[in-house]
Design a binder for these strands. Structure first.
Lengths: 183, 183
DNA sequence: CGTTATCCCAAGTAACTCGGTCTGCTTTAG
DNA sequence: CTAAAGCAGACCGAGTTACTTGGGATAACG
């Protein structure tokens, strides 16, 4: 029931991005994301491209460019990220809701295995599809604040020319406004 | 969050074995298990060996031999089978209860990802560690009975010389008696 | 303009895993 | 002795994973 490294890196990067955004650093370069969580930058790049193509991430090119969330973090369920990178949540195809696939067993109608695996898939979905990136970021920030800390990614962005970066960031068209929390 | 084919085959074979046992066919040859669920016999064999070494399965060699459960089906949680074949249930090592492993993130104490993945691992465990093979077999048998059917594996064993097979089966030392149901 | 920091994209790749097969035993009932 | 079973383990091709490499395209800044 493993999550791939790719999936893990995607979640780490997005979590950092969401926290940075919550602290008004909306545009974060790949290098900062990679360093903050000690992930191989070139590998992470592929993942971020995939997330952009999936409409989860937006990017700004050129000097002082970087990545930002394409939508408010509160509208990005963790399950969407995992599905995008690692495929369906269900342990076997015939138990999947979003990507059902017939399995090899001769009699699916009477297959107890399928029933139990549907339970598992629902249990997973009940966690991953309920939590959003915003909640995940909020919880993590609370933990950090409690110990008087700031996310490493934010530290790293601080060193950069902030005034210019802010100008670039300001150009991002539909300023992703955070709607009210609703859970 | 996939279950491997190996894990799937293990569960299918054990489910058939448990159903066969519930219908007084305690000793089932590899060939019947493989055919009943259309699994490649030589591959399945490796899996069954692994399950025997793990103390889940017992085997009887020689003509009219076969496999049987090493313990009552009610004492074999599905989670144990999955862990044995596919490793820990947790999506990432640092969220595992039974096989914790430090992850690469620089600050595990404040890692929100870990928290949510522990939720996932608990959700999975709440399904797989609560259901036993006996319950799985019972549910499946009920479904079959409702439609007047019998598990294919039992059909297949029927064709074999039953009197001899029963004699062989009788030799299995501590007749795995089914204790009272306790859920 | 050129430099520099950034993202974009496609290809390559080493190691590993998956899903098996093949070969040749040993054990046991008849 | 033979047939039916399990045992042991080497082998293998294809795919996946987790990366790296290399060569652009963009955009700010001097």
């Amino acid at each position: 029931m493993k999550l791939s490294k790719k999936g893990e890196y995607a979640l780490r990067a997005l979590l950092d991005l969401a926290m940075a955004q919550a602290l008004d650093r909306t545009l974060v370069p790949l290098s900062a994301l990679a360093e903050a969580q000690r992930m191989p930058a070139t590998f992470l790049e592929q993942i971020l491209v995939q997330l952009r193509q999936a409409g989860i991430l937006a990017s700004t090119r050129g000097k002082y460019g970087g990545y930002s969330l394409a939508r408010p973090a509160s509208e990005i369920p963790i399950g969407e990220i995992v599905r995008q990178i690692d495929g369906p949540l269900a342990p076997i195809g015939c138990a999947s809701v979003t990507a059902y696939e017939r399995c090899s067993c001769p009699d699916e109608a009477h297959c107890g295995l399928r029933l139990i695996m549907m339970d598992v898939r629902n249990a997973i979905s009940n966690v991953l599809d309920r939590y959003t990136l915003a909640q995940l970021a909020e919880v993590t920030l609370q933990h950090l604040r409690r110990d008087g800390l700031v996310p490493k990614v934010v530290e790293l962005v601080r060193h950069l020319d902030l005034s210019t970066r802010a100008k670039v960031a300001a150009k991002i068209p539909p300023a992703p406004l955070e709607p009210e929390f609703s859970i």
